Simulated assay, not measured.
Amino acid sequence: MVKGKIAIRKINCSKSRQVTFFKRRTGLMKKARELSILCDAEIGVIIFSCTGKLYEYASTSMSSVIERYNKMKRDNQQQSITTEEIQFLKKEAESLMQQLRCVQECNRRLMGEELSKLSLEDLKNLENVLEMGLKNVRSRKDQSFMEEMRELKRKVEEVEQENVELRKKSRVGSRDHRESKGEFSGESSSSKDTSKIGAHAILFKDEMPERILLQLSLQPKSHLLDAQKTASG
């Protein structure tokens, strides 16, 4: 007689549920033990009943089984992450290579190369792009030229300001020099005058005796003339 299949769903009757749990738990533990013996496999089984009771089986020890499980799980995760990263990097590299080829092709066209495959519309678009680029280059060149002109003007103004300051300092220095020179010349002229006066005084002192002698020698002659005049009268 063929045994009928049981529908896999929750058993509502608590008594039947407990009986089924006991039978299948025992069978599961038996199968796990047989598998570990026959195939030399490391097996660990952990079961929590609906009432919260723990049942476990380990071919070696439950802690070593759990530790090995965690290690293998970490390794698998790292391997999967590495594989995903490799796939992502490959796709990124392919995308970058495609962009590089497009940029190189556009550059060659801008340089006037490989234009035979372009249509009339593409050539017009390329011409518009070149005209726009040339306009931007000229605008930037004019802007740079104006900036250089402003910079040169600023430097010229700075140099002129420095020249003005130097002229002021030169005028002040020359005026001070003239004043100091004038004082020195005044002192020298006064000393020269004093020396001249002293020389005249010395000469006058030396000539005084001769003048006195001349006056003394002339006095008797004048008395004789007066006497002659009175006698004739």
Results as ranks from 00 to 15, higher is better:
Lys196Thr: 12
Leu38Arg: 04
Arg175Gly: 04
Asn12Asp: 03
His177Pro: 00
Arg24Glu: 07
Arg24Val: 00
Arg140Thr: 05
Val159Leu: 11
Ile8Ala: 11
Lys90Arg: 10
Leu216Met: 08
Gln18Pro: 00
Lys168Ser: 10
Glu114His: 14
Gln161Pro: 00
Glu147Arg: 15
Gly173Glu: 07
Asp142Thr: 10
Ile66Phe: 10
Met208Trp: 12
Lys5Leu: 14
Val103Leu: 14
Arg150Pro: 00
Ala201Arg: 15
Gln161Leu: 06
Gly27Val: 04
Leu214Gln: 06
Glu84Ala: 11
Val103Gly: 02
Gly186Arg: 15
Ile46Arg: 11
Ser188Met: 14
Asn125Ala: 03
Glu162Gly: 01
Lys53Met: 01
Glu84Asp: 10
Ser36Trp: 03
Pro209Trp: 04
Ala32Pro: 09
Gln215Phe: 05
Glu151Leu: 07
His223Val: 00
Ala41Val: 03
Lys196Met: 14
Leu216Ala: 06
Leu28Asn: 01
Gln78Pro: 02
Val172Leu: 10
Thr51Arg: 04
Leu120Ile: 11
Ile11Ala: 01
Ala199Phe: 14
Ala32Asn: 13
Glu85Met: 13
Ile37Arg: 11
Leu152Val: 07
Pro209Ile: 07
Thr60Ala: 00
Val137Ser: 03
Gly27Ser: 09
Ile11Glu: 00
Ser189Met: 12
Lys124Met: 07
Ser189His: 11
Lys135Asn: 03
Gly186Met: 12
Arg17Cys: 00
Glu127Gln: 15
Glu183Lys: 11
Glu131Val: 06
Ala199His: 15
Lys23Gly: 02
Cys106His: 12
Val164Trp: 05
Asn128Thr: 04
Ile43Ala: 02
Leu100Asp: 06
Val172Gly: 01
Ile81Arg: 06
